[in-house]
Nucleic acid binder design. Structure first.
Ligand code: FES
Ligand code: FES
Lengths: 144, 144
DNA sequence: TCAATAAAGGATAATTTTGTCCTATTTATT
DNA sequence: AATAAATAGGACAAAATTATCCTTTATTGA
């Protein structure tokens, strides 16, 4: 479904959001530890998220990653997926035709588009804040 | 969503079903041509589908791949996906946790499971026959 | 100013997925 | 029996993804 990079990216962003709720800035090392991901690879992904304005980064001592409260509402999971995996999952053909086109649909088109749109809507309507609060009250987990 | 191998596999199986409706047995070369896929790679995938009883293969001159009419109804797209990509898409965690577990869910679990189940049901309720007939009447396409 | 800390970024390695090529096996036809 | 056509399968190659390591840059605080 999503690439590994994207999975780590979402988990990382949720963790950053969670800690930012407490005003804590977090380092790559802490993030990788808390979401159980490879450190250096996670660093790359955080760079990407930072460049695409999903999270904010601060260099130097006391630096790290953070997200302000209003951004947690506006940043949707769809933004993260788009930043890392591109728009294939939103517009691509389920059977791999060069493009998904209702005028010349693949055999699975009609049924696939329904699912794809549900997924798209779900991701577009889920904010980092929403996911972070579930974590905060201990209902959900970022590693096992 | 699906791997390339799986995309080719579904397209190939639909084409085999379509031709089998006319009693025609088809070769790897014809299949690859008609679904616009790399020949040798497609051959591997057809082997896999043959081993997992999704389609039937016949060696030698006049040989090729075929599917009998009753199998077109019983073989669902979910079978093909499972044979090639395994069950990750049916049971895996959307955020990449080692396993999806409602007792210790990831932040996206509840929303993700809904989509995943819709996808699963869709694939389980779509037969090769259904997809082949859409092709037959010229409503859908296997390449662009 | 200096040392320490943390992200940014470049180079490279490992792994997985995708793809190719060649030989072996099976089988229909002559 | 010989030939040719077709899948099966093994070995290998290319490309993409995942992952690591090292150097550079920015910033804090002593
Ligand atoms: S053409 Fe295949 S999903 Fe739209
Ligand atoms: S635990 Fe992540 S989808 Fe179920």
């Amino acid at each position: 479904m999503f690439s590994k990079a994207c999975e780590y990216g979402i988990r990382a962003a949720v963790y950053v959001a969670l800690q930012s709720l407490d005003g804590r800035r977090v380092s790559v090392n802490e993030i990788a530890e808390e979401i159980d991901s490879p450190i250096a690879f996670t660093a790359k992904i955080l760079q990407q998220l930072s460049r695409s304005k999903v999270i904010h980064s601060v260099k130097g001592p006391t630096g790290g990653f953070e997200l302000d409260r209003t951004e947690m509402d506006t940043v949707k999971i769809s933004t993260i997926v788009h930043a890392i995996d591109g728009d294939d999952i939103y517009v691509g053909c389920g059977l791999g035709l060069k493009e998904c086109n209702a005028q010349k649909p693949c055999p699975l088109h009609d049924k696939f588009v329904d699912i794809r749109n549900d997924l798209k809507n779900m991701l577009e309507n889920t904010s980092l804040y929403e996911l972070a609060t579930g974590l905060e009250v201990g209902l959900t987990y970022l590693k096992r």
